[in-house]
């Protein structure tokens, strides 16, 4: 772990000014992923700017009936919030399907949104492997290496690292909006536009500008989002990252799917909005055959590597099963 300086900003404006004065800084929330990555020498910041105590750590109703989640709200507080469990159960389920109670107690909402991949080549403490995300231009050791946990969607010839989050998959299915504060003012970024699949520049994972601070997340007041579920397949019964996961939200009327939101995790280079599956489902009668064909449609463009081909069939079955489960909800 490299040595770094530390400061605790007293408000968001001071934090972004501090960042501008110390460009090789990183904002520190709960630290569960950041401090781990600093220990692994994956990142070597000159300065950490603690922001946990200066951004909102509460969940507040919005005027239109949605929720505003403060960036510093812990994963635990978000997962167990009564309003979240009632109106956006998929979000609570996704968070509780990830990490451990200790980690969820420390980890923040903004930190989860910015967490980095578990690719073993990226995370190697010696930095001994080619990695375009860690050392741009050096290549990718995973593509011709052991790539069982790697992505099958959104990959490129430069990177196949999986986005690790469960929470963000649910946020993707809930049309969440990410709120930021930066030197150019405030932005509201639909989560669909926030993440970048690892194409030309795998080191660039999202559209944040340097020093731009996440201040919160908005959830819309969409009544039918209450009919939702998160399912996850993983190597252990608990406390493990997803091999594949599905977040499904359905609006069903008389057996017909009026509207839907679907996102997949564990199989893509970003939380994956499943638009092809959604197109298959909208306006159709909810049947097992339809669910299967929707899942097939979404995975049609999947690209298998040597060791992760099983994820394609796994994701199809998991998505079909989750659709069936949500369709059967009262």
């Amino acid at each position: 772990m490299n040595a770094f300086t530390y400061s605790s900003a007293s408000n968001p404006d001071q934090a972004i000014a501090e960042f501008a004065a110390h460009p090789n800084s990183i904002y520190l929330g709960g630290g569960t992923n950041l401090i781990d990555n600093i220990k692994l020498n994956v990142i070597q910041p000159a300065r950490l700017i603690a922001v946990r105590k200066i951004v909102l750590n509460q969940i507040t109703p919005t005027p239109d009936g949605g929720l505003r989640i403060g960036a510093a709200v812990t994963n635990t507080d978000l997962a167990y919030d009564d309003r979240v469990r009632k109106s956006y159960p998929v979000l609570s389920e996704a968070i509780l399907a990830g990490a451990s109670p200790q980690l969820r107690n420390s980890a923040t909402t903004a930190g989860n949104i910015l967490q980095q991949t578990r690719c073993y080549y990226f995370r190697d403490s010696e930095g001994a492997f080619r990695c375009n995300k860690r050392n741009p231009g050096s290549g990718c050791a995973a593509i011709d290496g052991y790539n069982r946990i790697h992505a099958v969607l959104g990959t490129s010839a430069k990177c196949i690292a999986t986005h690790p989050s469960d929470m963000d998959v649910a946020l993707m299915a809930l049309d969440a909006v990410i709120l930021t504060h930066g030197t150019a003012g405030d932005r509201s970024i639909p989560i669909d536009d926030f993440y970048i699949a690892y194409g030309e520049d795998p080191a660039r994972e999202n559209v944040l500008h340097p020093g731009e601070l996440i201040t919160g997340v908005l959830l819309p007041a969409t009544k039918w989002f209450a009919r939702s579920n998160y399912m996850k397949a993983r190597d252990r019964a608990s406390y493990e990252f997803a091999l594949a996961s599905a977040a499904v939200v359905l609006e069903i009327d008389g057996g017909t799917i009026r509207d839907c939101r679907i996102a997949l995790g564990g199989i893509a280079t970003k939380p994956w909005r499943a638009l092809a599956a959604e197109r298959k489902l909208k306006g159709q009668k909810a049947t097992d055959d339809l669910f299967k064909s929707a899942a097939d449609a979404e995975l049609q463009t999947a690209v298998a590597q040597k060791y992760n081909g099983f994820k394609i069939e796994m994701a199809k079955r998991l998505l079909a099963a989750t659709l069936k489960k949500v369709a059967a909800m009262a």
Binding site: Y6, L28, G30, G31, T32, I35, D36, L48, A50, R52, T76, S100, P101, Q102, L103, N105, S106
Partner: peptide, 24 residues
């Protein structure tokens, strides 16, 4: 943060003490 051996209570809440800085 993978084994939990370092678990302590911060304001009554359990956390991994290996993934948080003392200065925080």
């Amino acid at each position: 943060g993978q084994c939990g051996a370092c678990t302590v209570l911060v304001n009554g809440t359990r956390v991994n003490s290996c993934l948080t800085l003392a200065i925080m």
